[in-house]
């Protein structure tokens, strides 16, 4: 069953998946090119700052990939009003699990592309003393962030129109409440950001050490 679900999902997102995997493979190359392209690879400070400048693109890509695969996971069912899926002889949770599994499997090419590209390009350059490449660490962080993004948006997309509307309403209310809090206290302190960026929040994965090369 998983096999056909994967094929079905792949059939819809094949080109997108190839494009995203290509970007995932290109990003380490571009990162290393930016870091070492200026010819002063011996300048550790410059290497670090340039690598840091490239680092936001990795979580951004993780977000895009997670979002894209999650949103496309249910598109075919949404189009048909879920009639076909619901007429299959398996419980709803089982079908959702198959869709989840298929989505997770479709993330693998992007992960592999990033891991291979990062490993190869960092092995191909000579790093200054005290500077190290972290292709595996970056890939693991990338995977974790993509998976969390994917599962978050997958669970939202799995809901009905009504539950999505409730979710959006809740987000809207929280944003308003946060703005009102700021307005009433006259400070720029945002409890919402405190919650969103707390170390255990699902958004915290987007922050942290995303550099391909680091001390």
């Amino acid at each position: 069953m998983l096999n056909v679900i994967v094929r079905e999902h792949l059939r819809r997102v094949g080109p997108l998946l190839i494009a995203l995997a290509a970007i995932a493979a290109a990003l380490p190359v571009l990162s290393v090119r930016a870091v070492f392209g200026h010819g002063l690879a011996v300048d550790s400070m410059r290497v670090l700052s340039t690598a840091a400048g490239m680092s936001p693109y990795f979580p951004l890509l993780a977000f895009i990939i997670g979002l894209a695969i999650a949103m496309t996971a249910w598109n075919a069912d949404h189009d048909g009003g879920h009639v076909y899926a619901l007429s299959l002889p398996i419980p709803r949770w089982h079908y959702a699990l198959l869709r989840l599994g298929a989505g997770l499997l479709l993330l693998v090419p992007a992960f592999t592309a990033l891991a291979l590209s990062a490993t190869i390009v960092t092995a191909a350059v000579e790093l200054p003393p005290s500077i190290h490449a972290y292709p595996l660490a970056l890939t693991i962080r990338f995977c974790a962030t993509t998976l969390v993004t994917f599962s978050l948006f997958f669970s939202i997309a799995a809901g009905s129109k009504k539950s999505a509307a409730w979710g959006l309403l809740a987000i809207f209310i929280v944003l308003i409440a946060d703005s009102l809090y700021q307005a009433s206290t006259g400070s720029s302190y945002s409890p919402l950001f405190d919650v969103l960026l707390a170390s255990r929040s699902p958004f915290s994965f987007f922050f942290g050490q995303w550099s391909l090369v680091d001390v």
Binding site: R7, E8, R11, R12, A76, G80, G81, V83, Y84
Partner: peptide, 13 residues
């Protein structure tokens, strides 16, 4: 109600 992007063979499979 079938997935429109699938071919006949794929839909059968």
């Amino acid at each position: 109600h079938l997935y429109k992007h699938l071919t006949v063979e794929e839909a059968m499979r």
